[in-house]
């Protein structure tokens, strides 16, 4: 079963990348390990035969959003002494684990109790054509609202960050 091995390898990479994100001290190292998580998630989408989402995850998330974040991190030129002192980070981490772990255990138990079936794929599942058809017929109104949201975010970012002589 190649798919099972691939799943466990990619899942391990994703969890390791997420652990690196929350444990590395410098945000640059955290961002690089988060890129590993995003790329292995793209591989998982490909295993689930979601071809369009696979491509968009690579292009938009691992490409555009992460390069924007990396650009800003480098732009602010963060040194070791600029970082906040995370002295009681392990304390908060332990508290968070105590709160989150029972909920996560319960939800994983629920997920494991779902039926084990693996239904046959229909023709063109996850293709650009079929997903696009769905997007422009049943999901037309949410699509338009998202386009307005993107426009508002664009204008807002320019207004916020593009001001000259703030002081």
């Amino acid at each position: 079963m190649l798919a099972t091995y691939l799943f466990f390898g990619l899942a391990l990479l994703a969890v390791l990348g997420a652990l690196g994100l929350i444990l590395f001290k410098h945000p640059m190292n955290g961002a690089m390990s988060f890129v590993v998580t995003l790329i292995s998630l793209a591989g998982l989408y490909a295993l689930l035969s979601a071809k369009l989402i696979f491509a968009i995850q690579l292009i938009v998330y691992a490409g555009a959003i992460m390069s924007l974040i990396l650009f800003i991190i480098m732009f602010l030129n963060i040194q070791e002494r600029d970082l906040p002192i995370d002295s009681n980070r392990w304390f908060y981490l332990a508290g968070g684990i105590i709160v989150v772990a029972p909920i996560a255990g319960l939800m994983i138990k629920i997920a494991k109790s779902l039926p084990e079936e693996h239904p046959e794929l229909i023709d063109g599942f996850g293709d650009v054509k079929t997903v696009g058809h769905l997007l422009f017929t049943e999901w037309l109104l949410p699509f338009e609202i998202v386009s307005i949201l993107l426009l508002v975010a664009l204008v807002g970012a320019v207004v916020l960050a593009g001001k000259r002589g703030v002081n």
């Binding site: 602010l76 049943e138 999901w139 699509f143 508002v152 975010a153 970012a157 916020l160 960050a161």
Partner: peptide, 24 residues
Amino acid sequence: HVLALMVMAVAAAEAALALAVIIL
């Protein structure tokens, strides 16, 4: 899949605005 697309668009908008706020 369509919902995942919407979430990605919202995440992109959020990234642009949040990074502008961080710079400010």
